[in-house]
Design a protein around this nucleic acid. Structure first.
Lengths: 126, 126
DNA sequence: CAGATTAGGTTTCCGATAGGAACCAGCAGG
DNA sequence: CCTGCTGGTTCCTATCGGAAACCTAATCTG
């Protein structure tokens, strides 16, 4: 267990705290993962992610754009085409997110098992 | 840019998706970081984190407990004392989270700058 | 014994947010 | 003119987060 050390708290008012709260959103990690392979269209993300509504996807992308992690490129075509891609800053988040999702892939079942064990506290100890 | 590869999407219905949504909560990452150094009391977390309400902290800890990442230990004393600590499974999350917070520490200012530049689109280009 | 204090947790109220579905904008094709 | 495609927004509702008060239980003060 590495821990964060005494001066490492980041639990107060430093910008790191803000950055963590920025990406620790229900959809942000998934959206960034969806953008990790290159420019993707709005509709592609909708289908790729699965479960996110257009409204929330738009909001998430706008927030990421405002924070400099995502760039929006709207083509003046018909039907309209809008592509989103990671900025260089956003690209630096891919490795951390990749590590996180690797953890999730490796431990997702363990989490489900724990959830299972917890939801049946019916001690039939006989 | 590494990306996640074609079969790496995790964007569908795999357990990894659930695990990501579990930890991609506004407070979960901060709480886990607060637990990374060892057993901590409820009130200690409140002060350590700063900004979280008791209700939400309790909810977050309960959820983490249900998912097998945190263990709760209530001492039958007065005044009551309750300590929370990471389970072995929860401890495996510290490294990924550490990497994430390191990113936040390194790039927090860049994010703030982008936020700044975005919120003043007043092009006084003269 | 009555009252204040400590510590964890719950309840109540309120504002913010997510989710779903429908609707809007702009243009190509019939 | 109507339909369809695509991105985005609006409306309504359910849920969640935050603040503050209240609850329990024991210890200290008087």
């Amino acid at each position: 267990m590495r821990g964060f050390g005494p001066g490492d708290s980041f639990l107060a008012d430093c910008p790191a705290r803000l950055a963590v709260e920025l990406i620790a959103d229900k959809w942000t990690v998934v959206v960034l993962a969806g953008l990790s392979k290159g420019p993707v269209r709005h509709g592609e993300l909708i289908e790729l992610i699965g479960g996110i509504s257009r409204k929330v996807l738009t909001q998430t992308l706008r927030r990421l754009k405002a924070h400099g992690l995502v760039r929006r490129h709207a083509y003046a075509e018909a039907p309209p085409r809008v592509e989103y891609e990671l900025t260089p800053l956003g690209a630096t988040l891919i490795d951390p997110i990749h590590i996180l999702t690797e953890w999730a892939r490796a431990n997702g079942d363990a989490v489900l098992d724990a959830l299972d064990a917890d939801s049946e506290p019916v001690a039939h100890h006989g």
